[in-house]
Amino acid sequence: MELKRILHVEDDPSIQAVTRLALEMVGGFEVLSCSSGPQALAQVDAFAPDLILLDVMMPGMDGPQTLAGLREHPALADVPVAFMTAKVHPGEIEHLRGLGAQEVIIKPFDPMQLAQQVRLIWQNSRR
């Protein structure tokens, strides 16, 4: 099995664009970009992603809340989720992992390395 489809939830359109470009152009993945948690929850079943990238700080429904919503979809039980955050307080990584995230990607990320990073996360989740 191979990593192909990535759901990306990010409210900032610029980062959304850069991330999508990095994943599509460098990694060759199929990316569905959503601008909010509710939008992602509405589309996730139809898209059926192999991996989900979640921004933490979003207006309205934030990353952790979106994750909780996603966990209610039985089909997504085995789909790895990684948070992307700029705010790294002590213990925050542990906290986010405790919520059920596979990994935490720190912003700003290197878009040239992002695809590789995501691939590693996916592979680790398969073990």
Partner: peptide
């Protein structure tokens, strides 16, 4: 810092992609 990082992430990310000949 946080507020700066968000735009900076997209700026440096975009430039990285451009300079990395991705586009």
């Amino acid at each position: 810092s946080h507020e700066l990082r968000t735009p900076l992430t997209s700026i440096s990310g975009s430039l990285a992609l451009v300079c990395g000949r991705v586009m």
